[in-house]
């Protein structure tokens, strides 16, 4: 209980820090850009984490990220609706396609599921540049309306706060899902599908639900990125885009709310921090080494670090002869 309260205050503190950060940075454009992308990837990683929570590890989450981006852009361009509306429509379309993809995946496990989701990202990309080329502009991509028109003074700040609000909303939503019966059902399926069925949880329904929510949130993240950049190309379906949420989430701590957030923040700081030293390939080498070391020595992610340090501290105190005095 005590711990729960601590976490609640901590998350409020984090949001507070995020809210005042632009003023501390004096609206430095480069850093604001880094922060905005960080927030978008927090949503994206959290959506991946939700699917993994139900026992389904996707290797092709870029498919939903990209579908959300394309759908939102096309709707905004064709109908003239504000991107503030279309990002959620894009998310809804990504969720719908997520259910369709989920239908082929519900019977599959582990590697099989990973490969099929990976394949879908590649297939969606091929469809985007061939059959839908007249709509999507093929490999060249198309322009996308900005979230806030660049004529509005301080538009980047408005965008930053909008995205911050959406991020906080998404994390709250995931928190509520994890706490609810749905979250319990996801856990039950992940741990043992047959036992879940015995206790009255229909695995297929819940797996599809997880796919829908996860794909929808990934679609919102993709739409946000696209409207922030102002253009979209099929590179949004790239393999690396599918890999980032996995890296962020597992580094932070798989299956926890804070994991994707911590992982994204830490890696983003590291990533842009190393850039200052003018490193290029070395940056990737350092990050690669960190990933390898972290999974060996900290398999539960960075969020388990405080417990680990506390445990180590306790053991040390017990061992030292003057303990207990």
């Amino acid at each position: 209980m005590d711990r729960e309260r601590l976490i609640r205050y901590l998350s409020l503190l984090v949001i507070g820090v995020a809210a005042v950060l632009p003023f501390v940075l004096e609206a430095n454009l480069y850093l604001l850009n880094v922060l905005i992308l960080m927030l978008i990837f927090i949503i994206f990683s959290s959506s991946w984490n939700l699917l993994a929570y139900s026992g389904q590890g996707s290797l092709g989450h870029a498919a939903f990220f990209g579908i959300g981006g394309y759908a939102s852009t096309l709707i905004a361009v064709q109908s003239g609706l504000s991107p503030y509306v279309t990002i959620f429509l894009g998310g809804a379309i990504a969720a719908g396609i997520g259910v369709l993809i989920g239908l082929t995946c519900v019977r599959l496990k582990e590697w099989f599921l990973a490969m099929v989701t990976f394949g879908f990202a590649i297939i969606v990309q091929a469809i985007t540049v061939s059959f839908l080329a007249s709509l999507t502009g093929g490999w060249d991509g198309i322009a996308s309306p900005r979230l806030v028109s660049s004529q509005v003074p301080g538009y980047i700040l408005i965008e930053y706060y909008s995205i911050l609000a959406i991020t906080a909303g998404v994390i709250l939503l995931i928190y509520l899902i994890f706490k609810s019966k749905i979250g319990m059902a996801f856990l039950a399926i992940r741990e043992n599908e047959i036992e879940a069925r015995v206790s009255g949880v229909d695995p297929v329904r819940y797996k599809l639900l997880a796919f829908a929510i996860s794909a929808g949130l990934a679609g919102v993240a993709g739409a946000l990125e696209i409207h922030y950049f102002g253009y979209i190309t099929p590179e949004i379906y790239g393999i690396d885009i599918s890999f980032w949420p996995i890296i962020y989430t597992i580094l932070g701590g798989l299956g926890t709310i804070a994991g994707p957030v911590v992982g994204t923040v830490v890696l983003t700081i590291l990533w842009d921090g190393l850039k200052v030293f003018g490193l290029t390939y070395e940056r990737y080498i350092i990050i690669g080494a960190i990933l390898i070391l972290s999974v060996i020595f900290l398999p539960k992610g960075l969020v388990s670090l405080p417990d680990k340090i506390a445990g180590w501290w306790k053991r040390r105190q017990k061992k030292s002869p003057d303990a207990g005095t």
Binding site: A52, G57, E110, A114, I250, Y281, Y284, I285, I287, L291
Partner: peptide, 22 residues
Amino acid sequence: GKLNEIFLSLGLIYLFQNLAAL
């Protein structure tokens, strides 16, 4: 766990690709 293997592989990919590029 499978996801840890994927994660480790991603680390190895970054490491090897960029060492080779260096």
